[in-house]
Write a protein that binds this DNA or RNA. Structure first.
Length: 108
DNA sequence: GTGATGACGGAAT
DNA sequence: TATTCCGCCATCA
């Protein structure tokens, strides 16, 4: 996820596949929920397969914050709160095998 | 040990 | 395009 460039997004399922965990999209969400506030991981660049923001406990400002952070990166939401994946989806160059952890695994 | 739940995905309808 | 349904599995009560 740290490789996702500014202004681009990836879906939960996409991240799961890159992590060599095909079909385990829910675990990606589960992992994100465990991130601390000080995490340097760009969690706001991960959206669901419909291009929407997924937050169960969106009582707080988290959901709004994700949208604001993305809009600050020039990502546009439509009237239904969704973005065009065909336009903003990130297309990684290297296969999953080429991934290297730049933080020594401290975020996991 | 068991059942419910959840930052989801995808096929079927 | 929208809904419904089922698979997925780490956690937790």
């Amino acid at each position: 996820m740290a490789r996702i460039p500014r202004g681009r997004v990836a879906t939960y399922g996409q991240v799961a596949r890159l992590a060599n965990l095909p079909g385990q999209a829910r675990l990606v969400g589960y992992a994100l929920a465990a991130l601390g506030q000080g995490s340097r991981i760009p969690w706001h660049r991960v959206v669901n397969a419909r291009g929407g923001i997924s937050l169960r406990s969106d009582d707080g400002p988290a959901g709004i914050l994700q949208r604001l952070r993305l809009e600050r990166e020039k990502v546009v939401f439509d009237a239904e709160g969704r973005i065009r994946l065909e336009r903003y989806r990130w297309h990684p160059r290297l296969p999953a095998a080429g991934i290297r952890f730049a933080n020594g695994g401290r975020e996991s």
